[in-house]
Structures are given as C-alpha cells and as structure tokens.
Computed example of a mutant assay.
Amino acid sequence: MKKNTKLVSSGRKSEYTQGVVNPVVQRASTVVFESVAQMHQAIKERSHRTLFYGRRGTTTHFALQDAIMELENGAGCALYPSGAAAISQSLLSLLEAGDHILMVDTVYEPTRDFCDKILTRYGIETSYYDPMIGAGIESLIKSNTKVLFLESPGSITMEVQDVPELVRVAKSHGLVTVLDNTWGNGWQYRPLEHGVDISIQAATKYIVGHSDVMMGVAVANERYWPQLREHSYLLGQCTSADDAYLALRGLRTMPARLKQHEQSALQVAKWLAEHPLVDHVRHPAFTTCPGHEFFKRDFDGSNGLFSFVMKEGSQKAVNRFLDALEHFKMGFSWGGYESLVTANVTMAGLRSVTGWDHGPIIRLHIGLEDVDDLIEDLDNALSIYESNL
C-alpha cells in the first residue's frame, strides 16, 4: 500500500473495530480470565497484544501501537503519558550506572534537564556534541559510551543532522542510536529507515494535532523492541484508552494537516526572509538552515514549525513584539491547528558546546489560519518591535 492508504488502514483490525469504522474505546484496569490456563497464557504473552492488565493496554492501545509501528516501520511501539516521558523512560531502559551518553547540543530543553539533573544522580555521564559534527562524533566516543541521542531538526535552532553518517559511526562502536522524531512525525521522516534503533515522538504534537492530549511514543527495531517494551512496562508507563482513541483519530488526518501546515509555513517564512529586521530564517527547507542538504536528501517534506532570527533587539523589544501578536498565541507546545510563538533573546543555558552569536530567535508554529492574517499580524508586531529598539 502507498502511504496515505496505509495510514488510513493501519490499526483497524476487526478485533479492534468490532464492526464499526474506528477502533472502540476499551477502558480497563482489571482483565478477567475464564480459566487458570487462559490467565497463565496471558502472563507468558510478551508481545503486548494480549489483554492481561490495564497497564499493558487494551485493544484501543493495541490499535494505536499497530498504526504508529506501521507509520515508522518498526517492530513495536510503546506508549507514554508525554513526549518527555517517552524520552526519559527510553533512556532509562537502555542505560545503567557507569554508562556514558552522547547528547546532541540542540536537544529539547527537558531532555537536557533530565540528563543533567536525573541521570547524573544514577552515575550516568552525559557529553554534548555539535549537531553538525558528522563523522567527527567518533572522537567523542568513550569505552563506556552506550547511547548516541539525536534530534533532527534541533530544538529552536533547527539544525538538521547527517543521521546516516552518525549512525554508521555509532554502529561501528556498538552504540544504541535514539532520535527524537517529533518534528519529522513519522510521515515526513522515518529514522529507522536510516538505521536508527529507536524513534521517539511527542504524539502530543502532530499525531494528536488538536492540543488536547499529552502522549509520547517510542518505536524500536527488532533488536531493541523487547528491551524497550519490558523496561517501559516495569517502569509503569501507560496511557488512557480515551487518549489513545484521540491519537488514532488525529493520525488519520495528519497528512492533510501537515500539507496545509507546510504550505502556510513556507509562505510566512519567505515573507519573513525578506523583512529588513530579520537576519535569517531557520527553516530546514531554506538554504540558510544548517544541514539543509540533509533535509533535502532525507525528508519527504516540512511542517509548520520553524524559527527566524532578528538582526538586533532587547528583551523589552521582544516582549513588545510578543504582546502585540493576536493570531499567534504564546505557548510551549506546537503541532495543533493554532499558530503559536515563543522567543529567546539569548540561548544561554540551552547550549553547551555550540555558541549563539546572533540576535533574538523567534520560534513560530504556523497553524491552519489564513496566511494573509498571520502575515498581517507579524507585520504589525514587527513594527511595534522596531519602535522599541
């Protein structure tokens, strides 16, 4: 099947749908068994596709896991109550005291905090690396390095990594490779096809698509799926059947939404690139974005999330800009139908080995509003920004 057909059809086995279009919402904590033999069989079943206990999941969860597993071409999918939980629990399933992890310097801030504030307490060392290091990553690998963590594009500054090259070096040293694929969403980028072992997403974003569910997913290849599955289960990770249903519903329309997000974002980004106050645009589809050549080579398209960099500006001017926006709401998520904005005057504390010698960086998520309204909104806010320089 081609991609659109596959996404519509996946996770819709008759045992999940029970005669209707969508998988039913099966809520459960306790599962009852008709015999001792049936109970023992459920205990021995390790695929997480048999009813056993609510924490393992119900048919609603199984349907979502099947659909995302097919989306990212993996051997299995684990569900978590948030994207941050998917990252932290995946790493805990792979690491132990004395291990060393190589973490991309442009990583999502909560991932950095988890490494610096939690993993250190368990004797796990983290080293940060330049996202554009490529084959040079080999010089940073230690005898106790266990995991290479990637995020491409990088959080806020949008650097696109040379994933196949990084994976090649990592595998030659026996490292596990993990990639935060929330931006790539499984539709526009599939890390496992590029050799990555585990692909993680905050399903909160484009999979759900309506800013009303917290959820994380991790898809693993055959080698690491049993380990990820068992350790996540032991760590008590689970989601509600209602949230799984909403994620399934969002998944069906994701390609159509992404197409509109992409088209609108490119229009806005092109307008910003010509604005006299803008130094450059950080959009993977633009040549001004570091790693643009890897985006062209590896991705099937872009979405609504990108950043742009101001030529100059103070915190006061940035605050005036943010307060002047009407259609762009201020918030820390993205991936929904609405447009959002966040800003950083400095990247201090968010980078360890890569500097930031540019002006303020503004991150936008372009929603499904009319593009002309969004551009007018930005134009007005930029005028107010200029008057406060």
Rank of each mutant, 00 (worst) to 15 (best):
G174M: 12
G134M: 10
K146L: 10
A135V: 14
N144M: 14
D130Q: 15
V147F: 09
K171G: 04
G123S: 05
I137L: 08
I124T: 04
T120V: 15
R112M: 14
V178R: 04
D162H: 02
P110S: 13
G134R: 15
I156F: 13
G134H: 10
G98V: 08
I141E: 02
K171V: 08
E125G: 00
S172M: 11
G98K: 07
K142T: 10
Y129T: 03
L119W: 11
A170L: 05
V163P: 06
V107P: 06
G136M: 13
C115R: 03
I101F: 05
G134C: 13
E125I: 06
K146T: 02
V167E: 03
T106I: 08
G98E: 01
V169F: 08
E138V: 14
C115E: 08
D99F: 08
Q161H: 00
V169E: 03
P164Y: 12
A135L: 09
D162S: 01
I141D: 04
A97R: 15
L150A: 05
V178I: 11
E96G: 07
L102Q: 01
I118F: 15
V147Y: 02
G136K: 07
C115M: 11
E159Y: 07
I141G: 01
E159H: 11
E151N: 08
F149P: 00
V104N: 01
G123E: 05
L140N: 06
V178P: 12
L150K: 07
A135F: 10
M158R: 10
D99Y: 03
E138L: 15
K171C: 09
V104E: 00
D162G: 03
T111I: 10
E165S: 08
R121P: 04
T126Y: 00
T111D: 07
R168D: 12
E165Q: 15
R112V: 04
D99S: 13
T106Y: 13
L166A: 06
Y129W: 03
G136C: 08
H100P: 06
I156W: 13
R168N: 12
Y128M: 01
A170Y: 12
K171L: 06
A135I: 12
S143I: 15
Y108N: 01
L148I: 02
L148V: 03
V107N: 12
P153C: 05
L166Y: 13
I137F: 14
V169Y: 04
P110K: 11
G98N: 08
I133D: 00
G154T: 00
A97C: 11
T177C: 03
S155A: 15
L148A: 05
G134L: 07
P153F: 00
E159S: 09
M103G: 03
V178E: 05
G174P: 05
S139P: 11
L140Q: 06
E109G: 12
G154A: 07
S127N: 07
E109P: 15
V167F: 02
V176A: 14
A170R: 05
Q161F: 02
L166G: 03
R112E: 14
I118K: 12
R112S: 13
S143N: 15
K142M: 11
F149D: 01
R121G: 09
R121V: 07
I101A: 09
V104R: 00
M132P: 01
P110A: 04
L175C: 12
V169K: 06
L119K: 08
V107S: 14
L148P: 01
E165M: 11
L166M: 06
A170F: 11
L148R: 12
